[in-house]
Nucleic acid binder design. Structure first.
Lengths: 160, 160
DNA sequence: CCCGGACATCTTGACGTCAAGATATTTACG
DNA sequence: CGTAAATATCTTGACGTCAAGATGTCCGGG
């Protein structure tokens, strides 16, 4: 009997005509996502990053040497608009974690490059971040983690 | 091989020391939550509502007659701060969907009441909303929906 | 009874995001 | 070639949220 169950019970009483099966799943998924985001933010914040800025740094880091991508490449992996990405890059450039370098091949474009400072920060942060992520799901045994992952994958496939 | 798989592969290549089990689950969960929120918003928007304003109206509606709750009661169910709730109520009051009525028992407090206009709007909207929610998870057969719900419940229990 | 702490709500200022459109560059075609 | 369409990024204005603190009200011990 959790928070979502109480909501469903109220709806069943007030509107017995509604099928609330999906509401339960979506409600738990949204609450869970909010909780997890907050827990993740806490660790990133200890390193002076938001999850927004970390996402950009991590995308550059995992792309491999020379740790450079265009804003368009970054957009393709992050589910945000171009204006949001411009803003994120502006912030990271101000704090010296990335720099914009001109792209000689295409002057409409620009390359976002990890600085040394950015590289060492993301290197340290991602290590702590991954430990934290594993902690957040440790209430599930390994086989249930795998089952959850499979179900999420299947549901996600309907949208991507 | 979905979007999240590609991210995990990059990390395995660049940082084979990291255990990315949880990253996969959390990544899919976050992307899914974003997709689902956008789909849900679309239906609410057709009724002139955001998910924020709908949440408030729906909470009042499912609380049962006389469809009145204090801001504090609303806060307890919505995972937002008091300032956010004040703002939501302000918007709904401007559009005539709720009204603030004084609480004679406790003048620090106030009751937020669904207006007739608010009631009929939420009544129509929630019907469409629930149909839409069920559509969003129809890619899973019934037994897998139940399994997913159970796993989410278990994980959520660690936070609530 | 009164006053300090608890409580309920609202205010303020900052931030991240989005949609829509502006600017600059490249590409393809006539 | 020259120009229109496509592409890549940035700008602008609005919105929802949060953290921190202000304001107004209630309550319980002295």
């Amino acid at each position: 009997m959790d928070h979502v169950d109480r909501i469903l019970d109220q709806w069943r009483r007030e509107r017995p005509d509604l099928d609330v099966t999906a509401m339960g799943i979506l409600g738990r998924l949204k609450r869970l996502s909010t909780h997890l985001s907050r827990e993740v933010e806490a660790v990133l914040q200890q390193n002076g990053l938001s999850s927004s800025s970390f996402d950009v740094l991590a995308t550059l880091r995992r792309s491999g040497a020379p740790y450079r991508l265009s804003p368009g490449d970054l957009l393709a992996t992050t589910m945000v608009t171009s204006g949001t990405m411009t803003n994120r890059i502006d912030q990271l450039e101000k704090t010296g974690l990335v720099e914009r370098v001109v792209n000689p091949q295409d002057r409409r474009s620009v390359l976002i490059a990890l600085t040394e400072k950015g590289f060492s920060l993301v290197e340290k942060t991602v290590t702590e971040h991954v430990v934290n992520q594993n902690r957040l799901v440790e209430s599930l045994p390994a086989d249930e983690k795998a089952a959850l992952d499979g179900l999420l994958r299947q549901l996600l496939a309907a949208f991507e």
